[in-house]
Write a protein that binds this DNA or RNA. Structure first.
Lengths: 241, 241
DNA sequence: ATTGTTTCGTTGTAAAAACAACCGACTTGT
DNA sequence: ACAAGTCGGTTGTTTTTACAACGAAACAAT
């Protein structure tokens, strides 16, 4: 089987047998990612072996990365959804981030000095991950890959962007009260989705974990804000007033 | 004057007049930065114009970057010290980070999609900043700069590393209580400095801002922890027991 | 239809943090 | 030497949060 093949033989190349149509599916996905933005499908196909691309599949609930593991690959989520989360010594779970299709993850641990991965990455849906050898990406190969330079630029901008997102989340968490955290997050999300009415990708427990507050206290605060006329909501649909 | 020259004529090249010894001083500094790690002084000198390097000087207390400004340069601190900080609508100041000599900063806002700078950057000492055009760095020039590839790798690893540091700080801030935040920060710092006895680069107010807690409450908690025998401290010298 | 599960709101209580105000020890500048 | 400013600790009060426990609604499985 295709999936099992790649799962158990990590170093196997992306394109190997007569799995052209399946490969084509992932090339189509890659084409839409930031990493390969501006690179045609043909060029992606020709770069896959150059970059040592590999596939791995994960069932819902499975660990994609565990705290303490080390990582030497750039990873892109091709199907499904992941949560990057962290459990401290007494079970407090914080969702550091949510990974959607096309996102990279784990790229913070690729520098030679950086040690082991600090978070768990877990599949919240059945998921497929594509891995690339980091050294092959950032080492410019002389001639073969014309569009290697474009991928390097994309990678740089993606890292820069992720950096900004982390800074943004630091902005939420540096607020002292639950209300301030909610206002910071929700108004940012409204701005991002360009509408005072928007959907968040979390249920209550997940949002509380994301903002590192107690769920019931957050629920209380949300309802208080609703009663004060600051906002309206139903499930994960919010509207700022 | 040298400094005034560069301050008022931003686009002026790094090497221009008979300022060889002053330039040499900054080349020596750059050689020790992560960005130019593994690149010789001669090679740095030859790359400076290629990368459109510029100098700017700031007095203690001056703003290096303001919230809302945009940025198209990679910035390296050559002398002095900066604080990256954020004031919210009601004056709560959070020190997002401290920038030391050799560090890059502001690299989160370089992606075309990323908007304005979200934080203030302020000089806490008289400081000198070196700026490089980001597009010139990540666009591989065909022949001129042999060591351009090394700089690209360094830049990538630096961004990755900074990413990890942000994730780490998120780890501190996602703790719910002041005590937990202190323990997380201090034990991490002890690990980093490889000793249970270590110095932190903050005074109390700055540490409180860094961890986004109230100074007096933090002071109270520190003393309580000291009385419980968890740690000892004097000024910014700490020892975990 | 009923049982179990998940999600979300609610309540009361205990713990923790913010806030404000103040004090003493040290620096710094004149 | 002295005034002004900085820094860190302390205290008391108010506000906020965590925590635990419960209940209703929605949904899925048997």
């Amino acid at each position: 089987m295709f999936g099992v093949n790649f799962f158990h033989a990590e170093r196997q190349a992306f394109i190997n047998e007569s799995n052209g149509d399946r490969v084509q599916k992932y090339i189509t996905i890659l084409k839409r990612t930031k990493l390969f933005s501006g690179v045609s499908e043909e060029e992606i196909a020709s770069m896959l072996s150059c970059l040592d691309a590999r596939l791995r599949h994960f069932q819902k609930g499975e660990y994609v990365l565990r705290q303490g593991e080390s990582l030497a690959d750039i990873t892109v989520l091709a199907e499904g959804a992941l949560h990057i989360q962290r459990d401290d010594y007494w079970g407090n779970r914080a969702i550091v981030n949510r990974v959607s299709v096309g996102d990279m993850f784990g790229e913070a641990y690729l520098a030679p000095e950086s040690g082991a991965v600090l978070n768990d990455v877990i599949a919240v849906e059945n998921s497929t991950v594509i891995l690339f050898d980091v050294r092959r990406i950032i080492t410019v190969c002389s001639s073969a890959c014309r569009f290697h330079a474009a991928v390097i630029q994309n990678l740089f901008y993606a890292l820069s962007e992720k950096n900004r997102i982390l800074v943004q989340k630091l902005g939420y968490l540096s607020k002292r009260t639950t209300r301030e955290k909610l206002i910071a997050y929700l108004s940012e999300e409204a701005k991002r989705q360009n509408s005072p009415s928007f959907t968040i990708p979390f249920n209550r427990q997940q949002l509380a974990d994301f903002l590192s507050v107690d769920r019931s206290a957050m629920s209380k605060e949300l309802c208080k804000m609703r009663d004060e006329g600051l906002l309206a909501f139903e499930k994960n649909q919010f509207r700022l007033l």
